[in-house]
Amino acid sequence: MSYFRAENLALHFGGLKAVDAVSFAVEKGEILSIIGPNGAGKSSIFNLISRIYSPTSGKIFFEDQDITEQPPYAIARLGIARTFQNIELFENATVLSNLLVGRHRHSTTQLWQELLFLPSVRANEKAHRRRVEQVIEFLDLEPYRDKLISGLPYGVRKVIELARALSSEPKLILLDEPSSGLNVEETDDMSFWIRDMRTELGITVLMVEHDMSLVNRVSDRVIALNSGRVLAMGPPAEVQQHPDVVAAYLGA
């Protein structure tokens, strides 16, 4: 059985078929990219998986568990993390606080224990802090640790959002256009991190991306979408030469 799979996923808004009978599977430890022209349904698929939308029909499975009806917070607790194209951070908090909120799904202490300031609470907090420091080191965020998000440049925020997702120690991470708004150098860093996430942290990656050079550098497989349907699926070079994909991009 596949690690993650979508079966016949469809999302219709009235007569508009944003996603139409899309099926695919992600293997454990794989980096899979979804590409396609604007309006192809890439973000819709992401929003279906992370349960912002409910599918019109179809099913989603993660580790052989049906997650189609789960609420968003439950998805996070199962070990699926995501980032957003437009960055959704806690703006008025420090980088460190943002990452610590990322630890929420691992919080085990009870309210009454916290109100009594039990030693176990303190020990727990220290453990969370250690994990977060590892992520900060992994993504070279030391200089920003105690800065407020609202004062940081776009490129850094993008990395912080990734760091927050990693702080939750996900099994599967969904990256929504990780390179959008980044310069060439920052995109290079991003491509290294995405690969390291898989090799060093063992995280499976599903991403939506426009930058073909990034897609080619990191992906094991690529899915090309157009008008809510899958055009082609396979290794990056193969998919890019697929006649339907070429036609969709060139508008022929």
Binding site: P72, I75, A76, A81, L89, L111, E114, L115, S168
Partner: peptide, 30 residues
């Protein structure tokens, strides 16, 4: 003050009020 600043539930509340969407994906039942 202690509740909002020192407990996990209080922190979850502050997170939800700051950014509901992000809070959901941190596993907070908003």
């Amino acid at each position: 003050y202690l509740f909002f600043n020192k407990t996990t539930l209080g922190t979850a509340m502050r997170a939800s009020s700051e950014n509901m969407l992000a809070a959901y994906y941190m596993g907070i039942p908003v």
